[in-house]
Design a protein around this nucleic acid. Structure first.
Lengths: 164, 164
DNA sequence: GTTGAAACCAAAATAGG
DNA sequence: CCTATTTTGGTTTCAAC
């Protein structure tokens, strides 16, 4: 028996409302946050602290428009591993962690072993990444799927703020 | 000639350093931000304001751990449109905007027309979304790819902070 | 661009109900 | 949980260089 990673802290309706608000706008002053969730300042502030300490809130970040900073190309990369050993996985994990252009890495069920989301300035930058990555880690197959238009993009998670 | 969406504001090295810092931690006080980018408080603060006004910084948000709030399933959904008309696209855009579970929607090049990233509590929630979505918008084909493990996930974009 | 300082406001911590 | 209060510290603006 391996056990589950962590006992998820129990969040009540007010906690979830707090998260819902802060996921949309982390600049919201505690005063306003408190009235939106139906609490007064002090206990509201304490809940926010608790959610941060518990690792439920992992950070507060600025969201930047990729196009404005010259990152016009988004690519989803499907990878089949050369073999299915713990060693390959560890090596792969280490390599993808190195690239700031790789925004997301998922280990997948089904045909595709890994799915990557990559953000770069353009085709030549992507090709450089592709060549470098496939040099560092052996892949049976790599399929690149190119985004033409980012129609929707949000960091707000679908949290349920109704009922208990 | 249709023209490009917008002339990207020209960002110098200091602007990019500011963005680099704030993408990692938006709680950084202006005082500390200023010294990290090699500026004094006032002009640093003015740059941050300008970057917000120009829409380069689109917001400051709290990042929440999905598992902690019971969102344990992440699915990438590949969709082929029933037809390739502006009407279908508009309808599709409207529908996907409705679902908070849909974090990202990309219009793709190649075989797959659209790629969605979906975050839900589990299989039954995903199936409900799948049934509902395919009822509201006609799809020629839908392929769901399930994430087993989120190995990497960041909102920090790979901005170049060296040279001019 | 710099420094320094004022005015304002929010965060953080405290005490009492 | 609430209100009230205080302290602390950051933001924002301004003046002068």
């Amino acid at each position: 028996m391996t056990g589950v990673p962590a006992p998820p802290p129990t969040l009540d309706r007010i906690d979830r409302k707090i998260l819902h608000e802060l996921m949309q706008d982390a600049t919201l002053p505690v005063t306003q946050l408190a009235e939106r969730v139906g609490l007064s300042q002090t206990p509201c502030w304490k809940r926010v602290q608790k959610l941060e300490a518990a690792g439920v809130i992992t950070g507060r970040v600025a969201i930047v428009d990729p196009v404005s900073i010259g990152l016009g190309l988004c690519v989803f990369v499907e990878i089949e591993a050369a073999d299915h050993t713990p060693e390959w996985r560890a090596s792969f994990a280490g390599v993808v962690a190195d690239y700031p252009e790789i925004q997301e890495v998922h280990r997948m069920a089904g045909e595709v072993d890994y799915l990557l989301k990559v953000v770069v300035s353009g085709m030549s930058a992507y090709d450089a990444l592709y060549l470098d990555l496939t040099k560092r880690v052996p892949c049976r197959n790599v399929t690149s799927k190119f985004s033409m238009e980012r129609m929707k993009s949000t960091t707000v998670l679908p949290i349920d703020t109704s009922a208990t």
